[in-house]
Design a protein around this nucleic acid. Structure first.
Lengths: 365, 365
DNA sequence: TCTTGAAGTTCAAACGTTTGAATGGTATAT
DNA sequence: ATATACCATTCAAACGTTTGAACTTCAAGA
């Protein structure tokens, strides 16, 4: 064991009575290593292992001028949304021999900037940003361009800024949810709209309205509710709970609630059950995202699944392509990937209490 | 913008008609920078900013022989258990100007080893491992010692290997849960024990038994159930669900279920509700951990909270201390921190259906 | 005997940064 | 006039690694 500091190449070289070069060539499996006698190679490897040698990635990166690192900046790792995306990214990068350096902005702009800078300092070769909000005008973006580091963003469309973007088709998702409730026979449907500063809110709401419209239904404005802008991504639960209480207090009922996301839906369920109503018998609830708590709550929340893992994989693939073309092509065009969401039917949705009268009168239903 | 590669100190120096040294001294705010004229300093800073210069952390680490980096190896970042621990670690390290390099072993031993090696290669100055399982005999441990990198582990006791350990008092937690049910008046209590290969399982079970014993209750072996060893940390839900179904099918009932963790508890709730029973009126359910889904499900799960954030903070503090003493003290003694858990009463637990008869007969209760 | 070629190994420079020592100035005290 | 102090800046070496070029040594071919 060394007195201090790490075991280096020259430690190994000294122990083997060889030069640093030879040891480096062998341990890094450079092309030249085929010219080194197998016995020597083995001797070096054994010695390196017994000394506990591990190459210094800083020295290596400096010399090779490659870090094999991609930065992944998530707006909040504790949001269940991020986890599968990050995992998809990680898998894909790992297979391409890249290390994904993950940092967590915790929805704080200050941290966001700090970490973006840190990724630059750590010489990430590319950056993937997961952010359905924040990330507006930071001048670090210019620095990233100056240093020729490609970016991909997950969760919103920034192709206008010439950044390749991967996101779910929110319009279609909203429409899927609404059509599901309409198909079940609901007509009095309450809608909880997302915070205004979140990118997803508007297209989702559009999809909901368009689907209602196509079925000849105009959504009653008295049955819509707006979630406030909040920093805490877990606040959706509180919002849903408050909505349910207010709605029940107002006496202005509905047979189904279409919530902005799963946390909101779980808040609504809590409010309804607390008041002694049954879900879905008295009122259906539909969420969005398909996060873990929605699947394991009882009743299971009917929701719109975002292909999160797939989105991560796609983002990583696009980034790897950009890295490949980095030197040849200067001008890359930003691409937009809008992935299809999927309806996941669980037990929080059912025909309305009076469905038999509203729909087909046959006794089979 | 440079043709390729990043902007370097010498780019800035050239643009300022100054030497690399001066620019370095100013931008890194070295002590010598007080000797540099303020006008010069400002000129350098402006130029650096306009060129988009960011210091190369690899070159800096190489020269300074410090990386200001601590590795955080979690056995599974998608486990809600890890999130608050990691956040506590991150906060604490950040305040001490350290960067926490987080990696996710996804409960795979192969990844665990690979990432541990990577942390060594990235010259993490210390390592925090979050692992209630895995992490048995990896010879990388020896390498870590050889390179004089301090370790702290969260989630199990490895003081026998002279590694400082931070964990919750599982024995006390189990006892708390059992005493809560006993206090409510339950006598027929089913217990779902954790997987054998998980460190927490045994002490938790001991605590449960000791508390029962102290109250003069012997737990009926027909009411205990053993979760199988599983790689997927989300499998607790399935286990709980299966338990509930089997128990109901056997007709051998109980008035309360003490589940190994929250996911298991949520599985039990699903099984009971599916069968038309009410929670907590017909059967109480208690979990362990206090993860998000337990709080936002309805009924909210009564559970034993682990002070996860605090555990992260503590682990980081101990590591920072070890880093401070690294050079002076060679022999550090490993410390054991066993933190007190806390009972969180929600709505999944209540007196048993026949509580009035079993306990005090007064009408006030 | 002299090339030629290969095998096995080493030299030395470079990557971008930091930093102790050194430089050339100018002002003040002796 | 010389020493002292300080100011503003630069020199040069070092961190651990990689790699193109160079160097031996030995054997075979001309």
């Amino acid at each position: 064991m060394r007195e201090r500091g790490h075991v280096t190449l020259s430690d190994v070289a000294r122990a083997c009575h060889l030069s640093v070069s030879t040891v480096s060539i062998v341990l890094s499996e450079a092309p030249l290593s085929s010219h080194v006698a197998e016995t020597t190679r083995e001797r070096i490897r054994v010695m390196a292992a017994s000394l506990g040698y591990h190459p210094d990635v800083h020295a290596r990166s400096l010399r090779r001028r490659r870090t094999q690192t991609v930065g992944v900046l998530a707006y909040d790792m504790s949001d269940p949304f991020c986890i599968p995306v990050v995992r998809g990214i990680e898998e894909t990068l790992q297979a391409a021999q890249y290390f994904s350096l993950q940092v967590n902005a915790q929805t704080q702009r200050m941290l966001f900037d700090r970490y973006l800078r840190m990724l630059l300092e750590r010489r990430a070769e590319g950056v993937i940003v997961i952010a359905s909000w924040v990330f507006e005008e930071t001048n670090l973006l210019a620095d990233i361009e100056k240093n020729n580091v490609p970016i991909v963003i997950v969760g919103r469309d920034l192709t206008a800024r010439r950044i390749t973007s991967v996101l779910v088709d929110n319009h279609e998702g909203g429409a899927l949810a609404m059509r599901h409730l309409l198909d079940l026979g609901h007509r009095r449907i309450a809608v909880i709209r997302g915070p205004e500063e979140m990118f997803d809110s508007e297209p989702r709401w559009q999809g909901i309205r368009d689907a209602a419209c196509a079925a000849g239904l105009r959504i009653d404005p008295r049955l819509t509710f707006q979630l406030p802008n909040q920093v805490d991504p877990h606040s959706g639960f509180e919002g849903g709970l408050r909505f349910a209480r207010e709605m029940l207090a107002s006496g202005f009922g509905c047979s189904a609630v279409l919530a902005f996301d799963d946390l909101t839906a779980l808040g609504v369920v809590r409010g309804l059950l607390e008041a002694g109503l049954r879900v879905p018998e008295d009122c259906s609830v539909v969420g969005f995202d398909d996060i873990l708590p929605a699947a394991i709550a009882t009743p299971g929340i009917t929701t719109i699944r975002q292909p999160l893992n797939e989105m991560g994989v796609l983002a990583a693939q696009r980034l790897l392509e950009a890295l490949d073309q980095r030197d040849t092509t200067r001008m890359r065009k930003a691409r937009l990937h809008r992935l299809a969401p999927e309806l996941v039917v669980r037990t929080s949705s059912a025909p309305p209490p009076t469905a038999e009268k509203e729909r087909a009168p046959g006794p089979g239903r």
